[in-house]
Design a binder for these strands. Structure first.
Lengths: 131, 131
DNA sequence: CCGAATCCCATGAGATACTG
DNA sequence: CAGTATCTCATGGGATTCGG
């Protein structure tokens, strides 16, 4: 989930581009398979919390392992807050933080572009396939 | 570069889940390591064309293999146009299409968010590491 | 100069089984 | 219920080399 650090990270000085480019690092995060969907589902529920199982139900296809990993990553990044009810069995509730909500704004833009334009990309691919 | 299709499509019907979610598919594209940078560099040059070698120079760290693959992918997707001067040696020029330019708009939003907020994410991570 | 072909490793992610 | 631990495999992507 973490890095794709340049193993070739020699002593080179990178202006704005190189090692810690914020955009690359953000894309590494939202590019992982379930992250954007989790953010979306949590955003739709916001400001209410959502439990693990409920989240899982709303994300068809996700395994508990990947959901767990995704939520941990989001939590470490401060995008999601986690609240545990110390019952037996425990209940764990998740909610977007303000930072997470703000990210959802950016993601909404991406989603809008995708829904508007992916069909054109598909057409372009067909044109190259059969031509 | 192409698909992240259900490789686990074992004996079971694995493609029952939204195999075509436009957002996922877009993220699979812009999430690859060099795509967003290529789009950015081409956008900055737009409406002028940029040659392969020049592109490579403006994308520190990219290998010719990955640049080639990235540009092919973008070209197939109709985001970039490719023009070959039939000289010896050949010169190949790349330019964003209108679709590519429109994608750059969405990417600009992501970039803006990243530059504004990645520091907060870093702080959150530190807080979890030591804090 | 541009790109194809190989080789190779690190990683994302699914399946499955176990724990408090 | 929520999360962890293994195993396994496919893929992204870097290095290098060859071709036109």
């Amino acid at each position: 989930m973490t890095s794709s650090r340049p193993r070739t990270a020699k002593g080179a000085r990178g202006d704005l581009f190189d090692p810690a480019c914020p955009t690359r690092r953000l894309l590494d995060r939202i590019g992982t398979k379930w992250t954007s969907m989790a953010v979306k589902v949590l955003a739709e529920a916001s400001p209410h919390e959502v439990r693990f199982a409920e989240l899982r139900r709303r994300m068809p296809g996700v395994s508990q392992k990947m959901l767990s990993a995704t939520l941990q990553s989001l939590t470490r990044d401060g995008l999601v807050s986690r609240r545990v009810e110390p019952t037996v069995p425990p209940r764990v509730h998740y909610r977007l933080t303000d930072l997470g909500l703000s990210l959802e704004g950016a993601l909404a833009t991406v989603r809008a572009w995708a829904e508007e334009h992916m069909a054109e990309i598909d057409r372009a691919n067909l044109a190259h396939t059969d031509g």
